[in-house]
């Protein structure tokens, strides 16, 4: 343990050359450092916006994709399977390029002119890509609710949709929520890819500052900490929500 610790300390303190640590670049007590920090953190809002909108779309699309997967009809289940298997197979970065550079051409060839900016390009890609996973989470959660529940709902006259809305989903949500929260964390991290199509979010800002300041180590360290803070906030929020729902379940 001790030699390892020593080694880490050595690396952190460095030997004061340009090859090692130079925290001045993001030292908020100096005017330049403070400007740099403000520049880096200013990407936070875009990262949050992209992630939240993509997550909301993903949990909506995911539910719409999961429902046909629960049908008795072979054809509906096939729709679900094809979507999930196909979307799940596409790596995020190629999909991002396809959406950002390719989709406008598809639109133009159909005679409509819908420009796709980096912001919406990133959101569409993240939402579609993630929806294959949320769809599977919904399907597993819904299928984990005993068959007797939907049978009982039917015998008191509820349609399949009403049974889903009032009986199945409220119970399934407790099992669905934790894995959905995981997916949200995943989206926040994957939103970093938006930097490659020019979106001014956290990672893009860091990259731009590295180019001018030549201090990748310090800047990327701060970048990682920025994501860490975001993810920890989400985790705390989810745990709070779960506790509330748990209490709701036990009490009256």
């Amino acid at each position: 343990m001790r030699p390892l610790l020593l080694l880490a300390l050595l690396a952190l303190s460095g030997c004061a050359s340009s090859q090692s640590w130079g925290w001045y670049v993001i030292d908020p007590t100096t005017p330049q450092g403070w400007t740099n920090v403000k520049f880096l953190v200013s990407g936070m809002w875009a990262t949050i916006q992209i992630s939240v909108i993509a997550a909301v779309l993903s949990i909506t699309i995911g539910l719409l994709v999961a429902l046909p997967g629960l049908s008795d009809r072979w054809g509906w289940r096939a729709v679900n399977r094809v979507y999930v298997e196909f979307i799940r197979a596409i790596p995020l970065l190629p999909m991002l390029f396809w959406v950002f550079y390719g989709l406008p051409i598809v639109f133009r060839s159909m005679g409509v002119n819908i420009p796709i900016d980096p912001f919406w390009g990133a959101i569409i890609t993240l939402a579609i890509s993630d929806s294959a996973f949320t769809a599977e989470i919904y399907r597993a959660g819904i299928q984990s609710i005993a068959r007797g529940q939907s049978e009982a709902a039917a015998t008191v006259g509820l349609s399949r949709w009403q049974a889903m809305r009032y009986v199945i989903l409220p119970q399934a949500i407790r099992r669905i929520l934790p894995p959905l929260a995981n997916q949200f964390i995943y989206i926040v991290k994957m939103s970093a890819f938006a930097s490659v199509i020019g979106m001014q979010e956290l990672t893009r800002r860091a990259n731009e500052l590295v180019v001018t300041e030549y201090r990748p180590l310090e800047i990327y360290t701060l970048l990682i900490l920025e994501y860490l803070v975001l993810v920890l906030i989400i985790s705390a929020g989810v745990r709070w929500l779960e506790r509330r729902m748990g209490a709701d379940e036990r009490g009256r």
């Binding site: 005993a146 049978e151 009982a152 039917a154 015998t155 006259g157 509820l158 399949r160 119970q171």
Partner: peptide, 24 residues
């Protein structure tokens, strides 16, 4: 004919009760 279409005519009591646990 779906079971819910018979909801007004036929009631059912199950061996395992099948109450909705999330509702009062």
């Amino acid at each position: 004919t779906t079971p819910e279409a018979l909801g007004r005519e036929i009631g059912m009591v199950f061996q395992q009760f099948n109450l909705f646990p999330h509702l009062s």
